[in-house]
Simulated assay, not measured.
Amino acid sequence: MPRCEDLFITSSEAPNERIHVREKTADSPAADTPAKAVLFVHGATYPGVMFDVPTSSWLDHAVDDGYAAYALDVRGYGASTRSPVLDEPAQDNPPFARAESAVADIADTIAFIRERTGVEKIDLVGWSWGTMTTGMYAASQPGTINRLVLFAPVYSCERRDRIAALEDRDNPHRLRPLGAYRTETAAQARERWGAEITAADPDSWRDPAMVERWYDAMLRDEPADFVRAPNGVLVDLWEAFNGRARYEAGDIDVPTLVIRATEDATAIREDGLGLYDRLGSAYKQYDEIGRGTHFVLLERRAPQLFDRVSRFLASPLAH
């Protein structure tokens, strides 16, 4: 079993706030001097534990590949500093935790990992909104990452269906008033996930116990029986769903993999291919996982996702 340690680093943006980072390394003397490191960055609603759910841990898979593996919680999520506004009525405060704050946390975490491991350039994997924040980081702060994986990306694609969910009914084409945060119960999480499964037998795509296993892991950092997530991301997504990219993919020059699942209703093919086409990387790949959803990292096809990413990261062409 890999060694696991939960670490906390100080935010450079807000010195009184802490960023939670989970570290997993091989349980052997060689792990004290890892040759490579990878950081996983979560999406809009769920914290970094997404990458370390029992029986489907991407962190464990990365350790097996010889990595020191890390997952952070952006401030406002998981075990990182949670704003006091999360304990107040959501409507009493404006959205917080925009992509820029997440990029600051990514920068702090990468600096910490580089110092802790001695690895000069690390690999970076983002999921969903995490592709926006890792993409912003890669576009603006070159020289610290080796390779980039944009998994289930949301970039810049006009989506009338998603705009309608965020639009102000009294002021069309404008974002509706948002509170500071939103909540999601286990039932809502199950419903959201299940809506993307097109198989007649959902259990053929997903272990029926996985929802509880995953949700229970997130509740360890919550004071109640639901997950709270900052709404700053909804402002970022409003821009993306209106076709306004939050970063310029052409400014990314490291080897990059864009990968999604075929039934992903959030990260659609048109957007993924548009992102791929606009990447400035001299070496880039586009890939899809069949019979999977936005949550494929927790589904029965997860090993296929992990293996394809591993092959990209290990490819001589990606160096």
Rank of each mutant, 00 (worst) to 15 (best):
1 M>V: 12
4 C>G: 04
6 D>Y: 10
6 D>Q: 10
15 P>S: 11
15 P>W: 04
22 R>P: 07
24 K>N: 09
25 T>N: 08
33 T>A: 15
44 A>I: 14
49 V>D: 04
53 V>P: 07
54 P>E: 08
56 S>G: 10
61 H>G: 09
64 D>Y: 02
77 Y>N: 09
77 Y>Q: 05
84 P>Q: 00
87 D>Q: 12
94 P>H: 01
96 F>Q: 06
100 E>A: 13
100 E>F: 02
101 S>P: 00
103 V>N: 00
105 D>F: 05
106 I>L: 06
107 A>R: 13
107 A>N: 09
109 T>A: 11
114 R>P: 01
115 E>R: 15
116 R>P: 03
122 I>M: 07
123 D>F: 03
124 L>K: 09
129 W>D: 09
146 N>C: 13
146 N>G: 10
148 L>K: 02
158 E>V: 15
165 A>V: 14
167 E>I: 05
178 L>E: 03
191 E>G: 10
195 A>Y: 03
197 I>E: 06
208 P>S: 10
221 D>R: 11
222 E>C: 03
226 F>T: 10
227 V>R: 07
227 V>S: 02
230 P>F: 06
235 V>C: 13
237 L>F: 12
238 W>R: 04
245 A>H: 01
246 R>F: 02
246 R>T: 06
252 I>E: 01
254 V>T: 07
260 R>Y: 09
262 T>L: 11
265 A>N: 11
267 A>E: 05
274 G>I: 05
279 L>F: 01
293 T>N: 02
295 F>E: 13
296 V>M: 06
297 L>F: 15
300 R>H: 15
303 P>F: 06
308 R>F: 01
309 V>R: 03
